[in-house]
């Protein structure tokens, strides 16, 4: 075991892991994060805490993580390279680890253009792959990126994202291989609606034996309505929502669409349980966290293992 991370223990035990996420509030409102995390208690192994997602200012990921940690739950510190340089990121990692946070997710982050501060400078001192490498060297070599020794190096279980649906598709397995080479321990994928394409990507992953080197958690986001399906299809970059899914959502009356969205998500989970190399699920119910417990239960993923 590389770390004390509960997520690492669950994955190492060979059982399907379940993670979900909490978006911190747009204000100094700790109750909000506590309320959201409480909904997930007992239903997931770890909770991603987003870092200024969609480039909108929110309470910081690490401070929200501390609240979740104090509840006895397991936060995953998300960190984007958009907002901080390597000094700031390393100091935040030291601080987070000092508070017992031992799992993180390394991302480049949405471009500032998409948020509420489009006039801000994007930092991008590092990219996500270089961030993975930096965190790994901090952990395994006990070295800062600049080369100096760290007193009590932070032992982070290191995650990253993968989007099998972005272009060029032929590079998507290769880019995962680069993250593996950089030292990533687990992957959470983009939301999966095009299951055929995801399975094709997994085939490529297995062909190269990458599934033996990294844990892969399949990204699941239930759709609330046909409107959301259309929005995801047309407006969200890198999202692949097949026409059949939109059609299926629109084939049921409005008041039943939420349930249809959940059903689609559960069917996807069921199908992916049988795919070699899928080690768990990352359920992102965007502003719909209250549905996660029901989904985990209906997906047959309860009880969560005690490790």
């Amino acid at each position: 075991m590389k770390t004390e991370s509960v997520l690492e223990k669950v994955l190492a035990s060979g059982q399907m892991a379940v993670t979900s996420e909490c978006g911190p509030p747009r204000g100094s409102v700790p109750d909000k994060i506590i309320e959201k995390a409480n909904l997930l208690k007992g239903y997931v192994d770890a909770i991603n805490v987003t870092d200024n997602q969609t480039a909108m200012v929110r309470m910081s990921s690490w401070s929200s993580c501390i609240f979740i940690k104090q509840m006895g739950l397991n936060p995953i510190l998300q960190m984007v390279t958009r907002d901080r340089n390597r000094l700031a990121m390393q100091s935040d990692i030291l601080g987070a680890y000092a508070h017992g946070i031992n799992t993180m997710l390394c991302l480049s982050g949405d471009h500032p253009k998409f948020g509420d501060h489009p006039m801000a400078a994007g930092v991008y001192d590092l990219d996500s792959i270089q961030l993975v490498r930096m965190v790994k060297d901090m952990r395994d070599e006990g070295k800062f990126q600049g080369g100096a020794d760290i007193v009590n190096p932070p032992k982070m279980f290191i995650g990253a994202a993968a989007n099998p649906f972005a272009d060029p598709f032929e590079l998507r397995v290769a880019r995962l291989a680069k993250k593996v080479k950089a030292g990533v321990d687990f992957i959470q994928t983009q939301c999966i609606y095009n299951v055929d394409k995801f399975e094709k990507w997994m085939e490529g992953v297995r062909e190269r034996g990458l599934h033996k080197q990294v844990y892969i958690l399949a990204g699941i986001t239930p759709m609330k309505s046909v409107g959301m399906a259309k929005y995801m299809k047309n407006k969200v970059p890198g999202m692949d929502v097949p026409d059949e899914v939109v059609k299926r959502m629109s084939s049921v009356p409005k008041e039943k669409q939420a349930e249809e969205g959940i059903k689609i998500a559960l069917e996807t989970i069921e199908r992916l349980k049988g795919v070699e190399g899928v080690n768990g699920f990352h359920i992102m119910a965007i502003e719909w966290e209250e549905k996660v417990p029901e989904m985990v239960e209906r997906a047959g993923l309860l009880p969560r293992p005690q490790v």
Binding site: D127, S128, Q130, F165, D167, P168, L171, G238
Partner: peptide, 26 residues
Amino acid sequence: CSKQLMNGPCGGSSGGKCEVDAEMDC
């Protein structure tokens, strides 16, 4: 690259274009 990624492309590359602007090459 809009994010000056040294190890791209990010997940926002679509049809050869950048997520920041549909007119911009990835």
